[in-house]
C-alpha cells in the first residue's frame, strides 16, 4: 500500500436540471492520495466546495462496493473509467498520474435524461424489468427447491448473466443507445433455468418492446457495451435474447 499524493485537474459536468444548459467546471485538486477511491476524490472536492458556500457536485452512489449499480459516469470518455470490469466506486486514484486531467460527465443516452450534474434518470431500466423480467409465481408453497435438478454448469451460466447490476453503462457506451446487454442478461438468466423457460419467449418480446418505447436504440454489434460492463456480461446473452425473440415472434400473434 505505497500511497503517494498527486495533483490533478478535474473537468466535471455541471447541469442544474434536465432542461438547463450544462457546462464543464474545472478544479485543480492538490495532494490527492492515490489510495483514495474515485468517489472519495469527488467527496474531497465536494467538502471543499461546501466550505466555500458553493453547491457540491451531485452524483449517485450508495454501496461503494461495486454491487448496487447506483454509481457511474464517463471518465475521460469511458463509462466507469479505465479499469476493466470495475465500477466507478471501485476505481482508485492510483490509476492516475500526477498532472493528469480527468474529464467527468454523466452517462449520456436518450433513455437516461440528466437530472442534475452527474445524476441521470434510469427508471427506464425498471420499466423494462416490469415488462417481463420475472417468473410469474406467487408467494405461497412452491415445491421443494430440490425437486427440479439443475446441472451445475447451467446454474453457473445463469449466475453469470444474473450478475448484472443495472448500472446502465452498456446503454451509455452504445453508439445506438441500446440497452440490449442489460435486457439480455435478465432474459438469459431466466431462459437458462427451467423455472423461467415457460415464459421465455413472451418475456423476450415484452422486454424488447418496452425498450423501444423508452427510446433505446437497436443493437448492431458494436460490442462497446461488453467492453464497459463492470460485471463482465457478454454479448452471447444478446444472441440468446435474439433467439428467444425470434422464436417468440413466430409463435405469438401480435
Amino acid at each position: 500500500m505505497a500511497s503517494k499524493n498527486i495533483n490533478i485537474l478535474v473537468k466535471i459536468w455541471r447541469q442544474n436540471g434536465p432542461l438547463a444548459q450544462g457546462a464543464f467546471e474545472e478544479h485543480a485538486l492538490k495532494d490527492i492520495s492515490t489510495d483514495m477511491s474515485f468517489l472519495e476524490m469527488i467527496d474531497v472536492l465536494n467538502e471543499w466546495l461546501t466550505r466555500k458556500g458553493l453547491e457540491p457536485i451531485a452524483f449517485d452512489h450508495d454501496c461503494r462496493e461495486g454491487i448496487c449499480g447506483m454509481c457511474g459516469a464517463m471518465v475521460n470518455g469511458t463509462a466507469h473509467g479505465p479499469d476493466k470490469e470495475t465500477t466507478l466506486c471501485q476505481l482508485h486514484m492510483r490509476r492516475f498520474k500526477d498532472g493528469d486531467t480527468i474529464v467527468i460527465e454523466p452517462f449520456r443516452t436518450q433513455g437516461f435524461p440528466i437530472v442534475k450534474d452527474l445524476i441521470i434518470d434510469r427508471s427506464a431500466l425498471d420499466r423494462i424489468i416490469a415488462a417481463g423480467g420475472f417468473v410469474s409465481v406467487n408467494t405461497g408453497s412452491p415445491q421443494d427447491g430440490n425437486t427440479i435438478l439443475i446441472p451445475q454448469h447451467v446454474a453457473e451460466q445463469a449466475m453469470d448473466a444474473a450478475a448484472c447490476i443495472g448500472c446502465g453503462a452498456c446503454a451509455a457506451a452504445c453508439p445506438n443507445g441500446s440497452a440490449m446487454l442489460f435486457a439480455s442478461a435478465k432474459v438469459s438468466q431466466l431462459a437458462l433455468l427451467p423455472q423461467g423457460q415457460q415464459e421465455a419467449k413472451k418475456r423476450a418480446i415484452n422486454m424488447v418492446l418496452q425498450m423501444d418505447k423508452d427510446g433505446f436504440g437497436n443493437c448492431s454489434n458494436h460490442r462497446e457495451c461488453e467492453n464497459v460492463c463492470p460485471k463482465g456480461i457478454t454479448i452471447r446473452n444478446i444472441a440468446r435474447l435474439n433467439r428467444e425473440f425470434m422464436k417468440g415472434s413466430f409463435a405469438i400473434d401480435h
Binding site: F134, V135, V137, T139, G140, S141, P142, Q143, D144, G145, N146, I148, L149, I150, P151, Q152, A155, E156, A158, M159, A162, Q189, L190, L193, Q195, G196
Partner: peptide
C-alpha cells in the same frame, strides 16, 4: 425452508452440486 423454495421458483441462481441439487 419455504424461503429457499420460493426463491428457487423465482429463478434465483443458487449454487448447485454437480448432480444438480442445491
Amino acid at each position: 425452508n419455504n424461503i429457499i423454495d420460493q426463491c428457487v421458483a423465482q429463478g434465483v441462481p443458487f449454487a448447485r452440486e454437480y448432480g444438480g441439487t442445491l
